[in-house]
Design a protein around this nucleic acid. Structure first.
Length: 116
DNA sequence: ATTCTCACA
DNA sequence: TGTGAGGA
């Protein structure tokens, strides 16, 4: 399939699909006219990328763990390496939440009444 | 009609 | 990440 079809089937713009490719997240062939040609599993690939991106992973992190990720659905099969990364990410997010909590409290103290 | 690359009031 | 230019 061409980029337009993959875009409509994944809900990811052609622009972004080209960006994913430039970041080494998507491998794609070209035909003689230079058009990108994707195979069926590209749809799955993009879904996995979206899921990982949505979890806050950087394209660099995704690039290294994507090869050990498999699975059709929006569900992702995690190889141990990927699991570790995600767990670390989870801890990092918790730390950030805590830090923001402190920032919020400090802000309240400085600004007085703060409506949220 | 689609896609490609490059670049940015 | 959108958008437009200039080609194929």
């Amino acid at each position: 399939m061409l980029i337009g079809e993959l875009a409509t089937r994944t809900g990811v713009s052609a622009r972004l699909l080209r960006y994913y490719e430039s970041q080494g997240l998507l491998r794609v062939r070209r035909d003689i006219n230079g058009y990108r040609v994707y195979d069926e599993d590209a749809v799955t690939r993009v879904r996995q990328i979206k899921a990982l991106l949505g979890a806050g992973l950087s394209t660099e992190q995704i690039r290294v763990v994507l090869p050990c990720a498999s699975g059709e659905n929006p569900r992702l099969d995690l190889c141990p390496e990927l699991r570790e990364l995600l767990e670390g990410q989870l801890r990092a997010v918790d730390d950030r939440i805590e830090q923001l909590r402190r920032n919020r409290l400090a802000l309240e103290g400085l600004a007085g009444e703060v409506r949220v």
